[in-house]
């Protein structure tokens, strides 16, 4: 008697889309191997955020395959990785646009018109906050305080570049600039450009 017909067996169930095969590039692998040394040998899990940033940088988002790859390197389960990914706001589990525009919406920026900046961006890009445009160029997100309240309304583009004091009436020019000149069109934040990097 067949106690476990194949169609009821766990292995026959359809699983979530895994995404394509994922493995770190040799370059990223070397970076991970270096950073994991910063933590005690039995505390590899501390490097998980870094490992996830590497994977996201390589692929643009974190597919289940990428999370499994990270789990393999951290030596934990894929569920533990997903637990972490689902908590932090800076990780994406779906593909996002080339430029992820994060608009700060918390009090100090809001006092200076952040809500209207989002409105304008939404109108110019033709997408609502949380969406990606059909060409895959822009994703618009509203985020909570970015920590540059004196430069409001402040934007973070992807997880690296900043643009400060964007008045709602300048949104259209800003988007055009970003389209043509890329991140070079951004002002940076504080004195970052003025004295920081030469």
């Amino acid at each position: 008697m067949d106690y476990a017909p194949a169609r009821f067996h766990a292995s026959a169930r359809k699983l979530a889309e895994q995404g394509g095969d994922f493995a770190y590039t040799p370059e990223n692998q070397a970076k991970f191997d270096a950073v994991v040394q910063r933590y005690p040998a039995d505390q590899r899990k501390s490097a998980i955020l870094y490992a996830l940033y590497l994977a996201q940088g390589q692929q643009g988002y974190l597919s289940p395959a990428a999370m499994s790859h990270v789990a393999h390197h951290i030596r934990c389960t894929a569920a533990e990785v997903e637990d972490v990914v689902s908590y932090y706001t800076m990780f994406f589990t779906k593909p996002v646009g080339k430029y992820v525009i994060n608009v700060c919406r918390t009090l100090s920026c809001a006092l200076l018109g952040a809500e209207r900046v989002t409105e304008q961006l939404s109108e110019v890009l033709g997408i609502a906050p949380g969406e990606t445009d059909p060409t895959g160029t822009f994703t618009l997100l509203e985020v909570e305080c970015l920590g540059a309240c004196d430069r409001g309304p402040v934007l973070m583009i992807n997880d690296t570049d900043w643009h400060e004091r964007l008045a709602p009436e300048n949104v259209r020019t800003f988007v055009d600039d970003l389209r043509t000149r890329g991140v070079g069109a951004l002002t940076g934040c504080h004195l970052h450009k003025e004295g920081g990097k030469t």
Partner: peptide, 9 residues
């Protein structure tokens, strides 16, 4: 060492 967080107040 610098340890980078990932967006959590």
């Amino acid at each position: 060492y610098v340890h980078r967080g990932a967006g959590a107040y």
